[in-house]
Amino acid sequence: MRKALHMPKGWGQQIVFLGPCLIFFLTIVVAPFILGFYYSSTDWNGLDLDKAVWTGSANWRRIFTKDDKFWESLYFTLRFTAVSVLAANILALLLAFVLMTALKTKKLLRTIFFMPNVIGGILLGYIWQFIFTKGFATIGEMTGIHFFELPWLGTPGTGFWGLVIVFVWQTAGYMMVIYIAALAGIPKDLIEAAKIDGARAPQLFKSVYVPLIMPAITICLFLTTSNAFKMFDLNLSLTKGGPGTSTQSLAYNIYAEALINNRYGLGTAKALLFFFAVSLITVTQVWITKRKEVSA
């Protein structure tokens, strides 16, 4: 009996255990990824694949020479990523430090700050569309504070900051719990020792806390950078890329090219560039922060 089961020497087990995972992974992720290299050089319109004609470098030429919108959306996405990654992580660190003190409402606060994160970007965008267009207007009337009276989401500037605000609101609590976990892992006597040596708050922060939580900083920067750079749901429901196309993220530009303009071939080419951009940015970021981890 035992011998019979072991006869194929592991092959049966290999197929049963690894097979299902591989079938789905290869069909859903790997196959489309490889197909992308082919489709990106065709004029595929999304419908008749048989009629998709190989166009060589036409899509690439078009992207690099004529497609200003694509580059504008790249520039927008880079600005958005830089600002929101910085803001989300600063707020998250601040919250983490506050929640490390002996607050009575600590647990409740953690829940509240984390809460927006469990709701999907689509719904968050709609919630804030209401807040920006109706809620802010009402608060503006009541208080007369200029900030609330701005034409929120109606101008490129307010659209940009609107997206940043919602992204930070959604992400800060999540990063906060990662920072709390890291801060809780710092030995207390280390902090005490530094204090006895006369370290003041800014020094303590720069020379003790930051190096010790560097792994968490790497993770949080990675997560926020990659999420911000790939932002789509929020973009779709909050501003729809507007006004005009002024707040169009890269992901949204690809979506619009394919599903609104029906240029799937061109969309695939952009999607491939998008993949290279995401890889480049996240790998560089992890490489930089990892180096800091080592030296710390």
Binding site: V29, F33, G36, V278
Partner: peptide
């Protein structure tokens, strides 16, 4: 790999 890079294919 971002989802947008796979979705159309």
């Amino acid at each position: 790999i971002p989802f947008q890079s796979l979705m159309l294919q």
